[in-house]
């Protein structure tokens, strides 16, 4: 099996987000960037499957500016075999555009498994995997918390859904999007980071794809969320119950 893992470069999970004063977006200058944590889980899962001999080759794909090469490199350091960067100068692409490009790459690479995070922690869209599956007419298993390969070229995937866990069986080729508890991604070791520098990354210009990258959604402005008014500290349980009863009128 061949796996295509799609990764996105985003503002690091632990960075405090600052909205730009002109309301055009959030501050990304001099901000630490990392691989989208859900995509990291996708890389880890592919690497684990390779270690079990269920996968022979792992391709790490990213679509973004030249800097996304760093993100691909960290995937290669975790155990990816080679990388593909589809290069664009645009800061943000919409999920539908990204889905079309992943489809085009997939048409050429013919992976058996396309695996990626359930959502990126920047735009929080939660769409790309579903779009890719639809455009390719592959079955999908989103929000995966467990993944098991059967002998008959199917995957059994446990999905984290509202109110419980759902299990579906999908046949290969397929798309899986990863949820938080699928695995805990490894830290790349120093030797593996060094080795990853030798691995090949093909850089393709986005213009070489027959995909219209014009935005359909226009971001009019980005604002800080409304602040909660500052609260108070109460002295004891009696005071808390009193406030909840008589001020909030909830109890």
């Amino acid at each position: 099996m061949k796996a295509l893992v799609c990764v996105k470069r985003v503002i690091d999970y632990n960075v405090r987000i600052r909205v730009k004063s002109d309301k055009s977006g959030v501050e990304t200058d001099n901000v630490k960037m990392s691989m989208n944590p859900f995509d990291e889980i996708a890389v880890e899962e592919a690497v684990r499957m390779k270690e079990k001999n269920q996968i022979q080759e792992i391709i790490i794909l990213s679509i973004g500016t030249d800097k996304s090469q760093e993100t691909i490199r960290s995937g290669l350091a975790m155990g990816g075999d080679r990388g593909i960067l589809v290069k664009t100068d645009k800061d943000q692409l919409e999920p539908l555009t990204v889905g079309k490009i992943i489809k085009a790459v997939s048409d050429k690479e013919k992976p058996d498994l396309i695996i990626l995070g359930k959502q990126a922690i920047d735009d929080d869209c939660n769409q790309t995997g579903q779009i890719v599956a639809t455009l390719l007419a592959f079955p999908q298993a989103t929000f995966a918390s467990e993944l098991k390969k059967n002998d008959d070229n199917t995957l059994e995937v446990t999905r984290e859904v509202d109110g419980g866990l759902e299990t579906v069986k999908i046949s290969i080729p397929c798309v899986v999007t990863t949820d938080l508890r699928l695995n805990e991604p490894r830290y790349a070791s120093l030797p593996n980071i060094m080795k990853a520098k030798q691995k090949k990354i093909d850089v393709l210009e986005i213009e070489s794809f027959d995909v219209d990258i014009k935005d359909r959604l226009q971001v009019l402005e980005v604002n800080e969320p409304p602040e909660r008014k500052p609260g108070i500290k109460v002295d004891d349980v009696d005071a808390l119950v009193d406030k909840l009863k008589n001020e909030a009128k909830i109890l």
């Binding site: 579903q130 779009i131 859904v161 509202d162």
Partner: peptide
């Protein structure tokens, strides 16, 4: 925008060539 809608709606948007507005 439950796991039901998040799972299904982007597929509908891809079939209709629309950029979904999430959540």
């Amino acid at each position: 925008s439950s796991t039901f809608g998040k799972n299904m709606s982007p597929k509908l948007s891809a079939l209709m060539d629309v950029q979904q507005i999430s959540d």
